[in-house]
Nucleic acid binder design. Structure first.
Lengths: 137, 137
DNA sequence: ATGAAAATGAGATTCATTCTCACTTTCAAC
DNA sequence: GTTGAAAGTGAGAATGAATCTCATTTTCAT
């Protein structure tokens, strides 16, 4: 899911492992996208006994709570995770597979209109562009 | 990929199997979304010996050529396919998993602007909304 | 200290998708 | 019509991300 406009993360006690997982994502440059494997490798440096399933569980929970964002990009082999940031879209290069953020978001009033028009409750909006990046052209 | 604004399908000789696969998708109500399994089941009624790998190959090719659209919806277990239609977005209900079309598309000039601004070549744009549908509320 | 609930790690499992490969079909050139 | 190279095919194996299971460990209010 790309943008979460449900508000700020709920304050809730998190298991130590989840904090380690969260740190693994927060301790990188904004705009970086990590796969679950990446997060696993990074978090394991802090907690060598950490299991992969726990990373997935933790990422799912952290994503639910709004601490991180799970990004499902069409065409990509697996999901990537990023730290919470301003709403934005994603671009995926079909040639090299790289993913980068694009400052962009749909106007909230548009979402409200669509939701009303179709009788839906829209919680998450995700926009993805695919094409070729500068270096692959 | 949700919208393809690269033009109309190229005229090219397609293997008979691919035509069967295409027919399986075209012979349903617009707005219906079929998984590869669904397409397989339907196409197999016409060609019982058809293999599953061939369906995947065919869908990939047909999608490349613009005859069908592959829809990768965040959160869904697998991709779905639909017939080519007016550009539109997708809504996925997080509760029942149903997917429906939403008449919506980004203004082309916006895409051109983003492409120029970020030095990208944008070929496909995909917008997905997630939330709860009317019957799940 | 204690016990119920939550969290954990390891490995098995699931399942969509892709790969492999021997075989078959297609079709243009002769 | 024959031929041969290229393309397509089906079956099953392989891949790999994500989820599930379960016995064990940790947490924490009491």
């Amino acid at each position: 899911m790309s943008s979460n406009f449900g508000g700020s993360p709920a304050r809730e006690r998190l298991p130590a492992n989840y904090l380690t997982i969260l740190a693994a994502i927060r301790d990188i440059a904004p705009g970086t996208h990590l796969t679950a494997q990446d997060v696993f490798a990074r978090a394991r440096r802090q907690r060598p006994k950490l299991g992969f399933a726990t990373v997935h569980r933790g990422l799912a929970r952290l994503s639910e709570l709004g601490y991180v964002i799970k990004v499902d990009v069409p065409g990509a082999a697996c999901a990537v995770y990023e730290q919470t940031a301003e709403p934005h879209a994603h671009f995926r290069c079909s040639s090299c597979g790289s993913i980068r953020d694009i400052a962009f978001s749909l106007p909230p009033e548009l979402l409200v209109g669509l939701a009303r028009q179709h009788d839906l409750q829209i919680e998450v909006e995700s926009t993805t562009f695919t094409g070729r990046c500068a270096s692959c052209r």
